[in-house]
């Protein structure tokens, strides 16, 4: 947590080291309030959560609280619904991030060329990212996916027949909404990458006989690699925590078919009032997230420090 280390270039000696310590503490002291604040609002609740997870405690049954050791974790490991929610989380995260990245790359390539009204088109394409997530989910639930007056059914109905999208394909419907919201983010990142692409390299490839698609595959994609990695990691960090659109559109249902981990924990904690169980799930999910995020962040940092820049 402490990011301050005093430079220790001063030679060691009793008097010197005491003054060094004073100097370094005089630097650390102003940071202490922030450190204390961070510990109080993040670390203390986490420790309390771990303690809860070792108890059987349901708010609906007063006086039921008792220490049960790791029983809650055993229950988490054997909970079929938890496993479904885990799979749903992985599918939702991977699907949203990958599909929005593919569409984002395509749109960025389009926006990278000059055409009439480009700035208007760009602004319109960015707009979904600016809409509040709850509002976007509400919009998709009603205006788009509603079985009686939704646009999706109105357009696709004559082609594939009448479908109640939100109950037939709940996870896919949520994913569509999230892809709609996340594509502009991916597009902007990739567009920044495209605009940093040196033009003379593209010209050289043209002179060397490469067709546009070959230039894209051989030169543009390798150049975009670290922008794509950054987009995937940042997108995944946000999407894995998605709650708003599931709460708004399907309430995790039907059954648990569109429930992801955050929503499942919410259900167990605030609808089932099972503090011990949900605390144990929270700890498990946090551990998993830290593990995945560490790997992902290491990936970004290696690709951004190992720069492949030629003159």
């Amino acid at each position: 947590m402490t990011a301050v280390t005093a430079p220790s270039a001063v030679p060691v000696g009793t008097i010197r080291s005491r003054s060094t310590r004073q100097v370094s503490w005089s630097r650390r002291a102003p940071l202490l309030p922030a450190l204390v604040f961070v510990v109080v609002v993040t670390q203390v609740p986490f420790v309390v959560t771990i303690w809860y997870s070792l108890n059987s405690w349901n708010l609906v049954r007063p006086g039921s609280r008792q220490f049960v050791g790791l029983a809650n974790y055993v229950h988490v490991a054997t909970d079929v619904q938890f496993r479904t929610a885990l799979v749903n989380t992985v599918v939702l995260t991977a699907g949203t991030v990958i599909i929005s990245m593919v569409i984002g790359v395509a749109l960025a390539v389009l926006l990278d060329r000059k055409f009439l009204g480009r700035s208007v088109v760009r602004t319109l394409l960015i707009t979904p990212f600016l809409v509040m997530p709850v509002a976007a989910a509400l919009l998709w639930k009603t205006a788009m996916f509603d079985p009686t007056f939704g646009i999706v059914d109105y357009v696709l109905g004559p082609l594939v027949g009448h479908v109640v999208w939100l109950s037939r394909f709940p996870l896919a419907s949520v994913m569509v909404e999230m892809i709609w919201q996340w594509t502009p983010f991916m597009m902007l990142l990739v567009l920044a990458g495209l605009q940093s692409m040196p033009t003379d390299v593209v010209e050289a490839a043209g002179v060397d006989g490469a067709r546009p698609f070959a230039i894209f595959r051989e030169l543009t994609l390798p150049h975009l690699r670290r922008y794509i990695e950054l987009g995937v990691v940042l997108g995944a960090i946000y999407v894995v925590n998605e709650f708003d659109s599931i709460y708004m559109m399907t309430q995790g249902g039907p059954g648990v078919s569109s429930t992801n981990l955050p929503y499942y924990i919410y259900e167990r904690a605030f609808l089932g009032f099972d503090v011990g169980q949900s605390a144990a799930m929270g700890v498990v999910v946090l551990a998993g997230t830290i593990l995945v995020a560490t790997i992902a962040l290491r990936l970004i940092f290696t690709s951004f420090t190992g720069r492949e820049e030629a003159a």
């Binding site: 050289a204 002179v207 060397d208 030629a310 003159a311």
Partner: peptide
């Protein structure tokens, strides 16, 4: 006629080497 069909080779001022190759 596009560059690729002209059968020419070019050396650029900044060399324009492909950085990933």
């Amino acid at each position: 006629v596009p560059s690729r069909d002209r059968d020419i080779a070019m050396v650029f001022q900044n060399y324009a080497l492909y950085p990933n190759k």
